[in-house]
Design a protein around this nucleic acid. Structure first.
Length: 569
RNA sequence: GGACCUAUAGCCUAGCCUGGAUAGGGCGUCGGACUUCUAAUCCGAAAGUCGCAGGUUCGAAUCCUGCUAGGUCCGCCA
């Protein structure tokens, strides 16, 4: 097995180019535009600076000098570019042998840079059900966890339940007043959320309600038994409901943290910092971090003048707690972009405290509605469970259209897998920094650049393989894979490991869906032009190996995204 | 007032970190392809001042500066 990627090419070039390091060479190697047949290209412009020669000339000279190893089929010069074609045999044999490991060709016997990584998400409030923004958060967190695990890091997924505060008391108050001690007659987090919305409605023409909610918060803080009982009951409902939704996405946590257990902690760290002179006390007794100079941030209050802690105090505590619990090398927070400033503050303050850990805020853009922002207090939200259900129903109709004779259980199973794929893929295919408008009727589709498109591709492959009588082997006549569509498809397969690599290094999950689209477009195009099952047995064997390799890569890619494949759809 | 993010065909979007070959896709529109391995597919066409203006460079969607528009944040809220 010879690992094929940019680095393997850079290693060849290294022997002939003294002016650039291996890393520089690797970063210069590029993937040519699709209309070229070449797998990789090396532009010689940079070298012409050093050598004071025309890049075209340098390219030609390099070509003449380089002894090409077996895994390179051809090396040609096109103007200032040195163009490589990797031979199909090496690629397909690699995939065939490595199977699911192909995407981590360099880490098969372990990742030498293995890290312990804590990922915190989706950290919901326990007074209302999860909305579509949480789904974006969940699929980002889950897929990133999958990706880092795939790359053989130790990943610890943790969740911070924001289970206390005035917003929690609002739904409690509404339930207390108008709930008649009812038990949930629907998914229990939705049941809780209804009282949050009810509170919002009632508060519109009743100013006293806010006062009552604050009184309830005070009772809660005092530990009033009735209030605590109610709080426990409603939190349990909310969290039980969330769990059902987490399960949908295969999300399980190594640890669940609760704001109610953390919010008073962290003061100790602040006072230690104060003693060391890291923080200051204001005239009225609050503690403040001065961040204007070194950190170029606004100053931040850490402890109120009445001595109570604020939100950031618990996050300071939690950072230490997570370090203690998991001894992590890196800690990732998956939180929406409105909190960018919060995390800048948090990381700066931790830095002041001497907590020099590798913290990273993976932020993502908010999802809004055509009518504007989501407002959960007014019930103007895209509910997570509702969207999933709707998409599954849509998928059910599609399955039913194609296979009316199927028993309903199988239809339902397929619809679930397809619907979920549509949702996950839709949320992961875009660059996470971008916010977007969710249009319930048109956003989620099964055609074009979608999860089902990728799944369909997979199902087509399974169908061909099961129809063919031939055994798939890696001993084929390699000259037969010479069709333009075959070559283009094989070329896409080469790029998978480096896509995984780039995604792991930058946390740009969307690279994977984008890659899978390219791969599947190449496959579908191949499919229409090249018949696999054929009277030409050698050709059939060759093409079977090719599509089997495509199958492996699709499955590996989809599984990282948290999407299941179907053999039939 | 300050900070950060975004701007690419009618709509959505990739490419920007690390400048390099004719700016890729998808939706929609128009025209084609199911007696042949699944048409949730494919083939073709029309559609772009890459927000604007400068600058750097042999070369800019990509880097720098300024501007415009939209969004977010700047609380002893969470």
């Amino acid at each position: 097995m010879k690992v094929i990627d940019k680095r393997s090419l850079a290693e060849i070039l290294e022997d002939y180019i003294s002016e650039l390091t291996l890393e520089e060479l690797e970063s210069l190697i590029e993937i040519p535009p699709p209309e070229f047949n070449y797998t990789y290209a090396f532009p010689c412009f940079k070298l012409s600076k050093f050598q004071k020669k025309a890049p075209n000339l340098i390219a030609q000279e390099l070509k003449d000098k380089i002894k090409i190893p077996e895994f390179i089929e051809s090396l040609t010069v096109d103007g200032p570019y040195l163009n490589f074609i990797i031979n199909s045999k090496t690629i397909l044999q690699n995939i065939f042998e490595l199977k699911n490991d192909y995407g981590r060709s360099r880490e098969i016997s372990g990742n030498p840079n293995k890290l312990r990584i804590v990922i915190e998400y989706p950290s919901p409030n326990t007074n209302k059900p999860l909305h579509f923004g949480h789904v974006r958060n969940m699929v980002l967190g889950k897929s990133l966890s999958n990706l880092l695990e795939y790359k053989k890091h130790d990943v610890f997924q943790v969740n911070l339940n924001n289970n206390r505060g005035i917003h929690i008391c609002k739904s409690m108050l509404a339930y207390k007043k108008w709930g008649h001690n009812k038990k949930p007659d629907k998914k229990s987090d939705h049941f809780v959320g209804d009282y949050y919305v009810l509170y919002g409605e009632k508060a519109k023409d009743n100013d006293d309600l806010d006062k009552e909610a604050h009184e309830l918060l005070k009772l809660w803080e005092k530990g009033d038994q009735d209030t605590r009982d109610l709080w426990n009951k409603m939190n349990k409902w909310a969290i039980e409901g969330f769990k059902i939704t987490y399960n949908k996405f295969g999300i399980k946590f190594h640890e669940e943290y609760f704001e109610s257990e953390l919010y008073l902690k962290g003061k100790k760290k602040i006072f230690e910092g104060l003693k060391k002179g890291l923080f200051e006390e204001t005239e009225d007794g609050a503690i403040i971090a001065r961040l204007k100079g070194k950190y170029n941030l606004e100053d931040k209050i850490l402890i109120r003048s009445d001595g109570t802690s604020i939100y950031i105090t618990q996050d300071i505590y939690l950072a230490y707690k997570k370090k203690e619990d998991f001894n992590y090398d890196r800690s990732i927070y998956i939180v929406g972009d409105p909190q960018i400033q919060h995390f800048k503050w948090l990381f700066a303050i931790l830095d002041m405290l001497g907590f020099k850990e590798d913290n990273y805020h993976l932020s993502y853009g908010m999802i809004s509605l055509p009518s504007g922002k989501m407002k959960s207090r007014e019930g103007i939200v895209v509910d997570a469970d509702d969207v999933i259900e709707e998409v599954e129903n849509l998928a059910h109709k599609e399955v039913n259209k194609r296979y009316p004779e199927l028993d309903n259980e199988e239809k339902k199973k397929r619809a679930e897998i397809i619907g979920l794929a549509a949702v996950i893929f839709y949320l992961l295919k875009y660059n996470p920094v971008k916010g977007f408008v969710f249009k319930p009727d048109e956003s989620i589709s099964f055609e074009g650049e979608t999860g089902p498109y990728i799944q369909y591709c997979y199902a087509r492959i399974v169908s061909i393989i099961s129809k063919s009588e031939k055994k798939i082997t890696k001993d084929i006549n390699w000259d037969l894979l010479s069709h333009e569509k075959e070559k283009f498809l094989i070329k896409q397969l080469v790029y998978f490991p480096e896509i995984i690599d780039a995604s792991e290094k930058t946390y740009n999950i969307h690279l994977i869906p984008q890659y899978l689209l390219n791969l599947c477009q190449a496959f579908n195009s191949f499919y229409t032009f090249c018949q696999v099952i054929s009277d030409n047995k050698d050709l059939e064997k060759a093409r079977l190996l090719l599509i089997h390799c495509v199958q492996i890569v699709i499955k590996t890619g989809l599984n990282i995204l948290g999407i299941e494949t179907l053999d039939k759809m």
